[in-house]
């Protein structure tokens, strides 16, 4: 056995998650029957299998943690948006509509994260980003309907652009992780 093959097998055994340890043992046993010219490649395959399996486990845990954080954040923003919307209804219906619309988008993000529909989550985030940009544009060209609460709409648009960008990036990452783990 070459030093390289020995190192690869040791690495494979060390890194393998519990669920794949039996498979690495099987590869180590099989290794003894592999012709000498193929041993390095075979041992490298064991290390590759082990590292990939370990990464998949880590990714699966990250997906779980990621979806939980998104659910928590989305639920908070949905409640905040919708309750703010209803609270402001008597004073300014435009403010109310903007808050409720944002709240509903966050509610959709919550549902998508809960169902782990990452494709849907990224679509919600893209929709939210488009809506935030539209609000920002309306604010920047001083649309008359926003005149009464101009600074509030400016802040709301800026905050929403930031939050939906974060949601879009996180959703896309989780989708990628979930795909590679499946």
């Amino acid at each position: 056995m070459t030093a390289f093959a020995r190192a690869m097998l040791a690495l494979a055994k060390f890194v393998a998650p519990e669920s794949r340890k039996g498979w690495i043992d099987a590869m180590a046993a099989e290794f003894r029957h592999v012709p000498s010219g193929q041993k390095n490649q075979f041992a490298l395959g064991a290390a590759e299998f082990s590292i990939t399996a370990m990464m998949e486990e880590v990714m699966f845990n990250k997906v779980n943690a990621g979806s939980f954080v998104i659910m928590l954040g989305s639920a908070f923003l949905a409640i905040l948006g919708i309750s703010n919307g209803f609270r402001n209804f008597a004073q300014d219906s435009t403010v109310s509509v903007a808050f409720v619309a944002m709240g509903l988008l966050w509610l959709a993000a919550f549902v998508a994260a809960m169902l782990r529909r990452w494709e849907l989550l990224t679509r919600v985030a893209t929709g939210g980003l488009a809506a935030s940009f539209a609000l920002g544009l309306a604010w920047s060209i001083s649309v008359p309907a926003l005149a009464a609460n101009r600074s509030l709409f400016g802040a709301l648009a800026l905050e929403a652009v930031f939050l939906f960008t974060v949601l879009l990036a996180t959703g896309a990452l989780l989708r990628k992780l979930a795909l590679s783990a499946s």
Partner: peptide, 11 residues
């Protein structure tokens, strides 16, 4: 198939 491809498929 290389061992690094075959064994994950078997698993």
């Amino acid at each position: 198939l290389a061992s690094g491809t075959l064994y994950p498929l078997l698993a």
